[in-house]
């Protein structure tokens, strides 16, 4: 991964030097392991703090919304798709962006790693070949197969290479296909349940939610100036942690992402309680694919299905 880091620094430095961009958005080390944070480099001196490894899981498209500057942005497959969504939704102009594409082999699941050991993880190392991950802390050191500790959305990812970019930092990585992975297996499992079982499943899933809205804040799709949960006139949804209010929040938040969600996993990664928020958005992704043949963020030419009308849209549910 050091070659990725070096290349990102080199390109960023060049872009800033030539004045092609006003800033470059990338990742830098966070204050604790596995929590890399976004960094805006505005001069050449900053770029040496950029890093790249398996902890760059949050979605940088979140940080370009409505910006006026020329921006260089480091983008893995899902970030690039979310940039495409932003462009379609007029949240940024394509010519404002210089996309530094990063072919991605998946991000590490920080919840899984944290749960796998008893102590606090003090350092995390990946080998150069990208095969193993070693975590260590006070009195322990564990090595895992990298593929086994990826975020679930990454192991099911179909678009590892950026769909739009101005420059790639490395050769493209091989894509997975429907034959390799069954990306909707978890959704199908819930679909087969009875209504009461489904209810109980989501009750259990959401029982830990503390309504911190980290999932919303980490999501590049959630850019409304005032979110529906923060409005008080009218108040659309109760603000308590009553299971009913929690469920309504999660349902509505997910639904706002219908046909736009790229399954980048930023919501799950940011959740302090480790809730699999994707259980809802993944269902919407499946519905969009089945009903409209649509996958979000693959093109900047087409409007998403929920803001277009076609005479052949499915309508069996309207009686």
């Amino acid at each position: 991964m050091t070659s990725y880091t070096d290349k990102i620094r080199e390109i960023s430095k060049r872009l800033l030097k030539e004045g092609k961009v006003d800033m470059v958005i990338g990742f830098t080390r966070g204050s604790v392991p596995m929590m890399h944070q976004p960094m805006f480099a505005k001069n050449q001196g900053d770029v040496d703090r950029f890093v790249w490894d398996g902890n760059c899981g949050i979605n940088l498209a979140n940080y370009v919304t409505d910006r006026k500057e020329k921006i260089g942005i480091v983008a893995k497959g899902c970030d690039a798709r979310n940039l495409a969504v932003h462009i379609v939704e007029n949240k940024i102009n394509r010519d404002q962006l210089y996309i530094i594409g990063v072919p991605c082999t998946g991000m590490l699941d920080r919840h899984k790693l944290t749960a796998s050991v008893a102590g606090e993880i003090e350092s995390i190392m990946e080998d150069e070949a990208g095969k193993t991950v070693t975590i260590s802390g006070n009195g322990f050191s564990e090595t895992y197969d990298r593929a086994a500790v990826l975020q679930e959305n990454c192991s099911l990812c179909m678009h590892r290479n950026p769909v739009i970019y101005d420059e790639l930092i490395a050769d493209k990585v091989p894509e997975q296909s429907e034959n390799d992975v069954d990306r909707f297996a978890a959704v199908r499992k819930v679909e087969e349940m009875t209504p009461d079982e489904k209810w109980a499943y989501f009750d259990d899933l959401l029982s830990d939610c503390i309504r911190c809205y980290a999932c919303r804040n980490a999501c590049p799709l959630c850019y409304c100036p005032t979110c529906f949960v923060d409005e008080s006139k009218p108040q659309w949804v109760g603000k308590s942690i009553d299971p009913t209010d929690i469920r309504i929040f999660h349902f509505l938040r997910a639904y706002h992402c219908a046909g736009r969600c790229t399954d980048c996993g930023a919501c799950v990664r940011s959740c302090p309680m480790g809730i699999n928020v994707r259980a809802m958005t993944k269902k919407l992704e499946k519905d969009c694919l089945e009903n409209f043949g649509w996958e979000a963020g693959l093109t900047t030419e087409q409007r998403p299905p929920l803001d277009t009308y076609k005479p052949d849209d499915p309508e069996q549910f309207i009686k």
Partner: peptide
């Protein structure tokens, strides 16, 4: 929308869509 509501455990008979 109907799909997701029912996916989350709302009983199918509770949700109706109609154009009137």
């Amino acid at each position: 929308m109907k799909n997701l509501l029912e996916h989350m455990g709302i009983d199918p008979g509770r949700l109706h869509f109609s154009w009137i």
